[in-house]
Nucleic acid binder design. Structure first.
Length: 925
RNA sequence: GCCCGAAUGGUGAAAUGGUAGACACGAAGGACUUAAAAUCCUUUGGCCAUAACGGCUGUGCCGGUUCGAGUCCGGCUUCGGGUACCA
């Protein structure tokens, strides 16, 4: 009987739908398991064969867990807001909601064909008001919260107001130490001063502490496009799209105080099962450095400023100070004599993005005219301004120690500033000595100490003499949360007297309004400025910005737990059942974006008591990228003649991409090529052995390379089960690899071979005979291997194991129920349609999804004899079959008695004989 | 520059420190067939040798540890990914 995959797959996809096979509910009687894929952005191009790779892996795991008795949550949805739909809307006038819905429908159709075990009743779309209601809700909660470092927790802003009322911004009962809370800038005021403030002043003060706050940040502003651009959208001072001028501008935008969580985001990495490289990437991104803040007085002035340093021990080598050009101190410290020069410098840096400033390592800078006083030596040191210091990190000012910092060194050399070595034996004539090793010199009371000791001594000195304070700094910056776009979540914010206020939670969701055009307004406002009546019922104007892409993806995993709840983001009892994502599968490209934001978002909700787990994603697997494998034809210059790959050297040729879908095993289908484009209708060919052989290369999978392979085409030709198997068979999931449809026949043959074991000419056919030890061994070897492999996400090797087992059973002509039934359960996670069909044929009325995973009986695996490799000096020379229970002495005797041994001993006595029982024998001569 | 990862046949790849190349694809030869498809069998890292047995060599490069290294350690090379003057 033929394996008719099309009919089988349609039959079971329909059955699963009607029987709601994949519907899942909270069930306290079963252990839970939550398997999640990073949800896709539904692009207009549809899925290509690379997208389902991670989904197939997670689906196998989800099905495996279910077979092992778990209640498995395995949902899917769409990250539906995004720029491509908006861009398309600007070009065509087509509303992004319409294109997005169309793309989602197409994705769904493609996903359905692959046979995933998603519970579609739980689908979420980030652009659905019922969904983004909870994104807006979380934003309001962040606005109404501040972060208490001492409690390491977010708290309601009312608590902070109470603290201000009783003791100002100082710690309870103190007038010196400030509250240890996250803020944009340190503010010192008493309770009396707080109470004396008017509403607007208090409003502004609180904004300094809120977790969602309006803040000033430096952005790449493009007035022609009416929007802020990311660093990689700008080059040489103009926008990449359109080439419009871009300038650095301070803009007031919504920000999330994610930096408050830096320490916890770092610490939390110790409690998740992610790869070390991914955790390391996050640690670097968070970037913790321990150091000291030192206060420097300005010479001949009452003012002073603070710098952050991790090398306070090098204070005796400070020969100049540097301010970031954006620093507020610049105008304060620039003297009249230097003003013109400084202004010119500021104007030139303003044109360049931060990235450009960083990328080219030209040394630039200007002297401010002022001097600072070294608090340790009381010497006057010049204050410079240079763009190698960033306003956004530390205090935007540094003390420069050219002898021991490469950047300071380059600067000192360029401007001829003194370089004082502080470590014995360090040669700083050519480059700085940056290592934290050696014995101090030229450093007053630190002389003779090691660098490590000096760092500690300096810290104590700074604290004792009140010259500054010990501080931990993080690289992680607050997230800018405003976008000048249409297609995103509206902020639940309105403005009264220019001040922002949150909508009442009961008025959520605030739905995205209709606009007649998706571009900025004439006045340069964001697209929402085009909306009519975009105001509260009282007439207060609503926020015109929308939220960024990561807003909707930061808590979607929680919403899947309870997707239809309109009273809460997620019900507490439901959250306590599903807890967190046990397995998260997605690409590495989200390492520092989504995976930081959602951890932050989750921790915030945890502080609020909304969720019970502090980390959202317990285990994470990164699937590799599927690259394209392009094919080429070679056209002889100035002709319409194409020469086959191995003959092309004799001609001058132009390689041309050819659609991989008209090439098979690198052999071009000539007829289809002629039809492919009118240009080639009259093409002529120089063939080798009557065939046209194409060249190939691994490139990105993209339309322009004509190497896109569509999963629908594969399903059409081979079936979904073959596609699933082949995607997994290609290699380890984490590894990137090119897609090459050549080779898919192998897994397809495997399925057909197994099918023919289960069938006769006309019908299914199983034997009820007792299995032989050989058959049992083949099966139990497979059970052991597949179970281990799935647990370790090594799906490619399990498929090999299936092939080996089926090859063995085919040789044994085994169609015994006792063997095939467990085998089908093992195969069910990989090839669900195929397995359901056989499972039904075996007489079952329930789904194979609810079978029980077989267990391996080691007794069947015991080998009676071992084929020992016999090696001499580590080189295997022959093998020797011995009973498994032969002891070492007997093994040695048997080896020595073997005629081949005499040859390799060459008459010498063995120095040593190493016998590893059941493994190997090695004779050292 | 820094951090992370990788490198094994014509191709995708496999190998708790223990017979390198399992399992597949492709290729070559053969069986069945009027023919083709499908299926089945044989060979397939390289070199040498051959009637046959066989021998040498081989996991990016150079060293080291070990009875034994694709695997562990040190030093490189190349490629891929991330990051970007973080004081």
């Amino acid at each position: 009987m033929d394996y008719r995959f099309k009919a089988i797959e349609q039959k079971w996809q329909k059955a699963w739908k009607t029987k709601q096979t994949y519907k899942v509910e909270v069930n306290p009687d079963k252990p839970k398991y939550y398997v999640l894929d990073m949800f896709p952005y539904p692009s207009g191009a549809g899925l290509h064969v690379g997208h389902p790779l991670g989904y197939i892996a997670s689906d196998i795991f989800a099905r495996y867990k279910r077979l092992n008795g778990y209640n498995v949550l395995h949902p899917m949805g769409y990250d539906a807001y995004g720029l491509p739909a908006e861009q398309y809307a600007i070009q065509t006038g087509q509303h992004p909601a319409i294109t997005t819905a169309r793309n989602i429908a197409r994705y769904r159709e493609q996903l359905d064909k692959i046979g995933f075990s998603f519970d579609w009743d739980r689908e979420v779309q980030t652009c659905d008001p019922a969904y983004y209601k909870w994104t807006q809700w979380a934003f309001i909660r962040m606005y109404n919260a501040y972060y208490d470092y001492d409690a390491a927790q977010a708290k309601p802003i009312e608590d902070l107001v109470k603290a201000f009322e009783s003791n100002g911004s100082y710690k309870p009962g103190q007038q010196v130490a400030l509250l240890n809370v996250a803020c944009s800038e340190e503010m010192a005021f008493t309770a009396a001063e707080w109470k004396a403030m008017n509403e607007e002043q208090q409003h502004n003060v609180l904004m300094n502490y809120r977790l969602a706050y309006l803040g000033d940040s430096m952005v790449n502003w493009c007035s022609a496009l009416g929007t802020v651009l990311a660093n990689d959208e700008v080059s040489e001072g103009v926008s990449i799209r359109g080439g419009h001028p871009v300038e650095q501008k301070v803009m007031r935008q919504w920000c999330l105080r994610i930096s408050a969580y830096a320490q916890r985001l770092r610490d939390g990495l110790d409690n998740v099962d992610w790869t070390d490289s991914l955790k390391e990437t996050q640690r670097n991104w968070i970037g913790r450095s321990e150091g000291a803040e030192l206060v420097f007085k300005v010479k001949d002035s009452d003012s002073s400023f603070t710098v952050f340093t991790t090398r306070a021990d090098t204070i005796f080598g400070v020969t100049f100070m540097v301010l970031a050009p954006e620093s507020a101190l610049v105008s304060e410290l620039t003297t009249a004599a230097q003003k013109a020069e400084v202004d010119a410098y500021l104007a030139s840096t303003k044109k360049r993005t931060e990235r450009e400033r960083i990328a080219d390592r030209r040394v630039t800078g200007v002297f401010s005219g002022s001097y600072a006083i070294n608090p340790f030596t009381n010497e006057a040191i010049p204050v410079w301004i240079s763009d190698y210091v960033l306003a956004g990190y530390g205090t935007g000012a540094i003390m420069a120690v050219p002898a021991h910092d490469a950047r300071d060194y380059a600067f000192a050399r360029h401007f001829n500033l003194p370089i004082i070595p502080l470590i014995e034996g360090a040669d700083v004539s050519e480059e700085s000595y940056d290592a934290k090793e050696g014995i101090m010199m030229n450093s007053g009371f630190l002389n003779g100490l090691t660098v490590k000791e000096a760092i500690e001594r300096t810290k104590t000195y700074v604290a004792d003499n009140k010259l500054g304070r010990i501080k931990v700094n993080f690289r992680l910056r607050d997230a800018i949360f405003s976008r000048q776009r249409y297609w995103g979540e509206p902020f639940p914010v309105y403005y009264k007297e220019g001040r922002p206020y949150m909508l009442d939670e009961k008025d959520l969701p605030l739905e995205l309004p209709e606009v007649d055009r998706f571009l900025p307004t004439e006045k340069g406002e964001p697209p929402l400025g085009n909306a009519k009546n975009w105001a509260t019922s009282e007439g207060y104007p609503l926020e015109l910005n929308t939220m960024p892409g990561f807003a909707g993806s930061s808590a979607y995993y929680l919403r899947y737990m309870d997707p239809h709840n309109d009273q809460a983001l997620v019900d507490t009892a439901v959250n306590h059942y599903w807890k967190q994502v046990d397995l998260y599968v997605g690409g590495t490209e989200h390492a520092t974006g989504h995976l930081i934001y959602s951890r932050f978002w989750n921790k915030f909700l945890y502080d609020l008591g909304v969720v019970c787990e502090e980390e959202p994603f317990k285990k994470l697997i990164n699937q590799g990228m599927i690259q394209g494998r392009s094919n080429f034809v070679y056209r002889i210059k100035d002709t319409n003649t194409f020469v086959s790959y191995n003959l092309k050297e004799a001609y001058e040729v132009t390689p041309i991409h050819v659609d991989v879908n008209i090439v098979s095993n690198d052999i071009l289908d000539l007829e289809r090529f002629k039809q492919w484009s009118p240009d080639y209708a009259n093409a002529e060919f120089i063939l080798e052995d009557g065939r046209y052989v194409c060249g190939w290369a691994v490139e990105k999978m993209s339309k322009s390379m004509y190497n896109v392979v569509n999963p629908d085409d594969i399903v059409e030709r081979y079936g979904a089960d073959t596609l699933r198997l082949y995607e997994m068979f290609l290699g380890p999931v984490e590894q990137s690899k090119p897609w090459d449809t050549n080779g898919i026949d192998g897994v397809n043959r495997f399925l057909r071979k197994l099918w023919s074991l289960c069938t006769s000419e006309e019908d299914f056919s199983f034997s009820n005979a007792e299995p032989t030890p050989e058959e049992l061994k083949a099966l139990h070897k497979l059970i052991k291997k597949v179970s281990w492999d799935i647990e370790h996400f090594s799906f490619n090797t399990s498929i090999s194991a299936f092939m080996i087992c089926v090859n063995e059973l085919a040789t044994l002509k085994c169609n015994k129920r006792a063997i095939l039934e467990p085998l089908i359960i093992l195969l069910a996670p990989f090839a669900p349609h195929f397995s359901e069909e056989i499972w039904e044929a075996l007489g079952h009325t329930d789904s194979v999804c609810d079978a029980t995973w077989p267990t391996c009986n080691e007794a069947y695996l015991v080998e009676a004899s071992i084929n020992y490799p016999i090696s001499f000096n580590g080189k295997t020379r022959f093998t020797l079959e011995l009973p498994a229970d032969t002891d070492n002495a007997a093994i040695e005797a048997a080896v020595m008695a073997h005629p081949a041994s005499q040859k390799w001993l060459e008459g010498k006595n063995p120095k040593k004989v190493i016998i590893i029982p059941k493994k190997i024998v090695n004779i050292v001569v």
